[in-house]
Amino acid sequence: MQIGHWLERVRAERPLVHNITNLVVTNIAANTLLALGASPVMAHAHEEVADMASIARAIALNLGTLDPYVVTSMDLASEAANRRGVPIVLDPVGAGATPYRTGAAMRLLDTRRVQVLRGNQGEIGVLTGAGGEVAGVDAKGAGAGLVDAMRRFARDRGLIVAATGEEDLVTDGEVVYELANGHPWEASITGSGCSLTAVIGAFVGVSDGTKGGLLEATVAAITCFNVAAEMAAEGAGGPGSFQVRLLDALHTLTARDVDARARIRRG
């Protein structure tokens, strides 16, 4: 699969991505989108989230620092997005760690049209019924039937499911892609997964909205981010310098880099 052209499309169209994300990574996610070539907005006030979602190309909802105010913000924004046909990317951070988080994620999935569900393998295992173990916001493991559960969940709900880990899995309910790019230091810095969710928002924001387009856009977003991580790690001395160099790598990343280094298997 040649996917570098998706990066060029994001840079050409500079999609506005409306992020309702967690307090820990707001700045990191915004800078990630800017480095990539997209346009971030980080609005959560009840008085404007619906208006902002209506003019965005995509919205990225992240449950990282959850409270009732944020839950309402996500309800208002996602309702407006569904009304206007704006794609939603949901990151169910910590689903499985507490009933509150699991319930908030499932409520959005049950009441809104979500286009992409992206979480770590533990979170996705919990939500899709495969089983998973989550400690805080970190995955500790997923059930052995994760791929089948993801495929079934994606097919039944008409969305794309992505489970990230040592090897990333993406499915539309029929096709499953296994993505092998990335670097272990991504797990050693704050906000790598949350920033990836924002990046997926940028890519689906320039898709045609079809199932095939959303699937390829999600595969392209994850691969571009992970190729940039590999490049950043080559000159870094540890997680601190890696985090800074990741922004630089996203900024200088080319379609040729992505196509040359992508490791994608169709399962």
Score class of each variant (00 low, 15 high):
Arg151Gln: 14
Gly193Phe: 11
Met106Ile: 14
Ala97Phe: 14
Ala80Phe: 02
Ser195Trp: 03
Ala228His: 07
Ala12Lys: 15
Ala236Arg: 05
Thr254Ile: 09
Thr164His: 04
Thr210His: 04
Gly129Met: 05
Arg11Ala: 01
Ala38Cys: 10
His251Ala: 14
Gln115Met: 12
Val86Leu: 00
Ser195Asp: 04
Pro87Asn: 03
Asp257Tyr: 08
Ile59Leu: 14
Gly182Gln: 06
Glu47Asn: 09
Ala97Val: 11
Ala220Lys: 04
Cys194Met: 05
Ile189Ser: 00
Val49Trp: 00
Asn22Tyr: 02
Ala229Glu: 01
Thr21Ala: 01
Arg113Lys: 15
Pro40Trp: 01
Ala38Ser: 10
Ala80Trp: 03
Ala187Tyr: 09
Gln243Asn: 11
Glu167Ile: 15
Ser188Trp: 14
Ser207Thr: 09
Leu215His: 03
Gln2His: 14
Ala228Gly: 04
Leu196Met: 13
Met74Arg: 06
Arg265Phe: 13
Val41Trp: 10
Thr164Gln: 03
Leu247Val: 12
Ile222Glu: 06
Ile28Cys: 11
Arg152Ala: 14
Leu33Ala: 03
Glu234Val: 12
Val25His: 02
Asp148Phe: 08
Gly131Pro: 10
Leu247Pro: 01
Asp91Gly: 04
Gly94Asn: 13
Leu169Lys: 08
Gly165Pro: 10
Ser54Leu: 11
Asp257Lys: 08
Gly96Lys: 07
Glu174Gly: 13
Ala60Ser: 14
Arg113Tyr: 10
Leu66Tyr: 10
Asp138His: 11
Trp185Lys: 01
Leu90Phe: 10
Val219Leu: 00
Leu146Met: 07
Thr218Pro: 02
Tyr177Glu: 10
Ala198Pro: 10
Gln2Asn: 15
Gly85Phe: 11
Gly103His: 05
Ala58Leu: 02
Leu108Glu: 02
Gly96Met: 08
Trp6Cys: 02
Leu169Pro: 09
Gly64Asn: 03
His251Arg: 15
Thr218Gly: 01
Gly235Asp: 12
Thr21Cys: 04
Glu133Lys: 14
Leu169Asp: 00
Ala142Glu: 12
Gly191Ser: 07
Ala50Phe: 08
Met74Ile: 03
Gly193Ala: 07
Glu123Gly: 03
Leu196Arg: 08
Ser73Thr: 03
Asn31Met: 06
Leu214Gly: 03
Gly182Thr: 12
Asn120Asp: 08
Arg155Val: 07
Arg245Ser: 11
His251Trp: 15
Gly209Asn: 08
Asn27Thr: 13
Val206Arg: 02
Ala162Asp: 01
Asn62Phe: 03
Leu16Lys: 04
Arg151Tyr: 05
